[in-house]
């Protein structure tokens, strides 16, 4: 494939996902009051968003494989879907909990003032699990709709889930932090 063909095929989806990512940035800018009070929030944000994207994409990849093996009726097998979601949610819980502790440790070593421990760890954990749960639901819907329309879900899951994690992850994290930490 020539470089011009690659650019022409990839450009439209990028134009849409980039515009949506700017909304995430606008939300961060709007939350400057909370961030100014607790700069640790901006320290955690890239790892938080990256983690949400990676975890959702791993679930999506496993779900898509199951759809390929078992067909679109797989969406009705709730127990099997829950069995796929359970270890993902447990890994996510451990990841967000440890991430919050490492961030607190880094801030402490660098000599910055720390936020209250329980509300901070709680806000990272609760918003992380909430975003992943929403990501799992979106992933199931995207896979199911793609199969129904005879499209390859692999072409849609990654860009949709990455943008979803950027946008929804930022909104959920900063809102939950504002409520739990106050700000």
């Amino acid at each position: 494939m020539s470089w011009r063909s690659i650019v022409i095929q990839s450009l439209p989806l990028f134009l849409v996902t980039l515009a949506l990512s700017v909304f995430a940035g606008a939300f961060i800018e709007r939350s400057l009051a909370s961030i100014s009070k607790y700069p640790i929030l901006i320290l955690v944000l890239p790892a938080f968003i990256g983690g949400c994207g990676n975890i959702s994409n791993v679930f999506a990849a496993r779900l898509t494989s199951a759809f390929y093996f078992e067909g679109a009726q797989f969406v009705k097998e709730r127990k099997a879907i829950l069995a796929k979601a359970a270890p993902i949610l447990l890994s996510a819980g451990v990841f967000f909990f440890v991430l919050a502790l490492i961030a607190l440790g880094a801030e402490s070593v660098l000599g910055f003032s720390l936020p209250p421990l329980a509300p901070f760890v709680g806000s990272v954990l609760v918003s992380g699990l909430a975003t992943i749960t929403l990501g799992i639901i979106v992933s199931i819907l995207v896979a199911w709709r793609s199969f129904k329309r005879r499209l390859d879900p692999d072409n849609f899951e990654a860009p949709i889930l990455s943008t979803f994690s950027d946008l929804v992850g930022v909104m959920v994290f900063l809102n939950v932090s504002r409520v739990l930490l106050g700000g």
Binding site: T17, L18, S21, V22, A24, G25, A26, I28, E29, L32, P46, I49, S162, T163, D166, V170
Partner: peptide, 9 residues
């Protein structure tokens, strides 16, 4: 900060 998520994406 408005631009950074888009650039990283």
């Amino acid at each position: 900060l408005v631009m950074l998520p888009a650039l990283m994406n």
